[in-house]
């Protein structure tokens, strides 16, 4: 089976920390979906995306099962990166590879047996759309900032790993342009699942999974009802963005900020 043949991924319920069954029937993820996973720290958000990443088969701590197109995925989907339909970007903002950005990407491209040589340059260019701190191809991976690392790993997941489903764990903390990321992923028909504490990322997602005590508590589909909140979140985000730039530039912010 080809990873592009992934029509849907289905999460079947497991148990919460007290061993009680989760109260949802199934959560289905399809191409183009944007989903955010929210809830207090320690409520099981990362465990949920980890279940998706490893295609849990009632063999993780949560007892969940994850199906592809309604069936247990074939072994190569789970084990062979060339077939694996999901790519996880972890919370870790440091990459410990002893390589330059170019060498790192080239090695990934080689492992994927991709012939197109322009892909390394295009990946760096895309990553630079996600971050304000320019990534150079000769920089060492270990020397990249958190934002640069995340941007590069997201761009790689889109272009090199080319996975149809992306899992992003608290991507907002690294300071990357989340709206631009969402835009690119949507345009590429990717399904994207964010673990997030960020109101803007949550409001930009079409569905929200609320976690509690290690279990899915609820799945919310705002269906346009949050449009006013989203507009306000975008406005506030714009203000903060401008302030950040001004502070970075060494300016004093004395004028009106709410423009």
């Amino acid at each position: 089976m080809d990873p592009s043949a992934v029509r849907e991924i289905t999460i079947l319920p497991g148990r919460n920390r007290n061993g009680e069954p989760e109260r949802f029937e199934a959560i289905t993820i399809r191409p183009g979906d944007t989903i955010s996973i929210v809830g207090p720290t320690g409520s099981g958000k990362s465990a949920l995306i980890n279940d998706i990443e490893v295609f849990a088969r009632n063999d993780t701590a949560t007892g969940r099962t994850v199906l592809v197109n309604g069936e247990y995925p074939p072994e190569e989907f789970v084990r062979d990166p060339a077939y694996k339909p999901v790519a996880l970007i972890t919370q870790n903002t440091r990459c410990l590879a002893d390589l330059t950005v170019e060498e790192f990407l080239a090695m990934h491209v080689r492992s994927r047996k991709i012939e197109d040589e322009s892909i390394v340059g295009r990946t760096i260019d895309l990553a630079n759309e996600f971050t304000g701190e320019k990534i150079r191809s000769c920089a060492r991976m270990t020397a990249l900032s958190g934002g640069q690392t995340r941007s590069l790993l997201v761009a790689d997941a889109v272009l090199v790993a080319a996975a149809p489903v992306l899992l992003l764990d608290e991507v907002e903390n690294a300071g990357i342009f989340k709206e631009r990321v969402i835009e690119v992923l949507r345009a590429g028909g990717k399904a994207v699942i964010f673990v997030t504490h960020d109101p803007l990322v949550s409001l930009l997602s079409a569905r929200r999974i609320v976690m509690r005590d290690g279990a899915v508590e609820r799945v919310i589909e705002p269906d346009g009802r949050e449009i006013a909140a989203l507009r306000e979140a975008l406005r506030l985000d714009g203000i903060l963005h401008r302030m950040r730039e001004q502070i970075r530039a060494g300016d004093l912010i004395t004028g009106p900020v709410g423009a």
Partner: peptide, 11 residues
């Protein structure tokens, strides 16, 4: 580690 790092390590 993220997906790309896994694959580079595997390589």
């Amino acid at each position: 580690v993220s997906q790309a790092e896994k694959e580079v390590f595997r390589e």
